[in-house]
Amino acid sequence: MLTAVKNQGRVSFLSIKYALMQEMLNRVTFFTNILFMILNNASFIIQWIVLYSIQNNVGGYTFKQILLLWGIAAGTYGFSHFFFENAYDLSQIINEGKLDAYLVQPKNVLLSSITSKVKTSALGDIFYGYIMCFFAGLGVVDILLFTILSIIGGITLTAIAVLLGSLSFWFQKADMIAESGNGFMTNFATYPDGIFKGIVKVLLFTLIPVGIVNYLPISILTEHKVEFFFLIFLFMIAIVFFAFFLFYRGLKRYSSSNLMSMRI
């Protein structure tokens, strides 16, 4: 059992390493992608400077907390998209029959498929997360905590993407549902939860769990609420299990295809 986990880990690590090497074939493109993603994220600071010039508290968040909200949003997104980019293409992978190659290998099909591509610009997001930590004045311990929270949130986001992508085993057009669903997670992620009320707020902590991926970590970072930490950790475990369950359930319905496909 333990060696199986170790071997799986070794293969996933190699897979990510090779996918990264592929991205690094062109150095200039590699670095511009990272740099421009940082600039891209940074541009949104203007929006908040303008908003905070109107009022010094938006939705119950201080400016420092907004910086951290952006940090967590970028960190979770970056972690998820860098290591598991293919989770976001799962619909396409299923519809085009690209799981074949992973199905004939004696390894976990889901892990093999989602780790076989990395997104360079997501590295920019991860860096941006740390830049925000720096501007928010976090100490060393809190930066470590930030890292852990980004990983938990990133895994949660990945699991959501897998759940949505797995719907493609049942519906061909599920790719659009998946795209919208993943879009929701990022759209809400950078706005303070105080501006939402009633049913929307309930949705944000349940069906569209932005609250769990983004808002609770802010409370953990700024108020050190340990109970919230356990909550998001348990949520991650539960949703990861659910994602594996649904994916393997759907795999029985997988219909492959004779489409020409290459891993370029």
């Binding site: 090779y18 074939l25 074949d100 190659a101 004939v104 290998q105 004696p106 004779n258 020409m260 891993r263």
Partner: peptide, 18 residues
Amino acid sequence: AYEIGTVFGQKEQLWTHL
């Protein structure tokens, strides 16, 4: 999977940049 090998002429299993 440990016991069998597969080659699909229309699908490549190799990483092309390696």
